[in-house]
């Protein structure tokens, strides 16, 4: 009755969220005195999972699953859970993880808790802490069904290495035509660009930057820090930046370690999307801007003077600490 974790991979490589989910699931397995099994789809090398606590890997290789397919993945995960008699299934909360988790829950007649941020308070009864009200509060949720599905929030648990090796075995789920009734026709994804979802650092600009022509210094900072770029809603509404960069309540959530906000006032709807970021820095020329109440570090001043100077210093720092 091992714990089962879905470890997402992309082009054969595991995503950080997947390794985090494995680290977390190992914690649950330990609390329940059992082992951890991972299910992977078309991953090249699964040995890395052993470092994060996985004891056994069920490895699915299938041309039919080359493209992500929520129904088929959910069906395969269900079959893996049955094979392993798993009582707990863990998924991370990437776009794909959020897509499949409720489908898995229905198939396993399991209760599902999303946005979980910590190991269970107790495993019997099974109680987890999750965010609620756009991170303005936490909610302790008890899952009462026999099988439980847990969605782990991004960057909430971190990576935890453990000793051991993962034994890999081929797994061939029985998939039927019904699993392939939603089909991906094309994927449009920027390569070699850090995404807001996966970034450790996010550098974000607001209306205070005056116009799209001034984003060079934001992109430069992002380059130096290996960060993703983001923006406030009016900035994307005015077409200064693409919609995919808009963060906040109606945009993307940010859960990075560091969020640097330049020329953003810190409206509640903006903050709602970045509450889960660990450290927040604000650069704004108005000391009364509400962002200063939400930030850890702040610089009061003109972004057009501060950001270029800061970029130079960050470059020196990176050169020294490379």
């Amino acid at each position: 009755m091992s714990v089962l974790v879905y470890t997402e991979s992309e082009d054969g490589k595991f995503k950080k969220g997947a390794l985090e989910a494995a680290s977390y699931a190992k914690g649950i397995a330990e609390a329940m005195s059992t082992s951890l099994t991972a299910i992977v789809f078309n991953a090249e090398d699964t040995s890395e999972l052993g470092k994060y606590g996985v004891d056994k890997v069920l490895s699915v290789s299938s041309d039919k699953l080359k493209n992500f397919n929520a129904e088929a993945y959910a069906d395969a995960i269900k079959q893996a859970a049955e094979k392993e008699s798993s009582k707990v299934v863990v998924l991370d909360q990437s776009a794909n993880g959020k897509y499949i988790a409720p489908l898995v829950a229905v198939q396993l007649e399991a209760g599902y808790a999303s946005n979980v941020v910590a190991l269970p308070e107790s495993t019997s009864p099974f109680q987890v802490k999750r965010t609620a009200f756009t991170n303005k509060a936490f909610n302790f949720t008890e899952i009462s069904t026999e099988v439980k599905v847990v969605g782990l929030s991004k960057n909430a648990f971190g990576l935890k290495e453990s000793e051991g090796a993962a034994a890999s075995e081929a797994f061939e789920p029985q998939l039927s035509a019904e699993d392939f009734t939603v089909n991906v026709e094309s994927v449009d994804k920027a390569k070699d660009k850090v995404t807001i979802a996966d970034a450790e650092v996010v550098v974000s600009g607001g209306r205070g930057l005056k116009g799209p022509e001034n984003w060079g210094m934001i992109e430069e900072m992002a380059d130096i820090l290996g960060a993703a770029t983001a923006c406030s809603k009016p900035v994307s509404d005015m077409g200064w930046r693409p919609h995919s960069e808009h963060v906040g309540q109606t945009g993307k959530p940010v859960a990075s370690n560091l969020y640097i906000a330049v020329g953003i006032s810190g409206a509640i709807q903006h903050l709602a999307g970045i509450n889960a970021a660990k450290t927040k820095v604000v650069i704004n020329n108005d000391p009364e801007a509400p962002f200063f109440k939400a930030a850890d570090y702040g610089v009061v001043g003109d972004a057009f003077e501060i950001v270029p100077k800061l970029n130079e210093k960050l470059k020196e720092f990176k050169a020294k600490n490379a």
């Binding site: 776009a95 794909n96 939603v182 991906v184 026709e185 994927v187 994804k189 920027a190 995404t195 979802a197």
Partner: peptide, 15 residues
């Protein structure tokens, strides 16, 4: 025909 937002991009699906 739907467009879905994925991490870092989007994809087009039919169902």
């Amino acid at each position: 025909t739907a467009i879905r937002e994925i991490d870092g991009g989007k994809e087009t699906l039919t169902a």
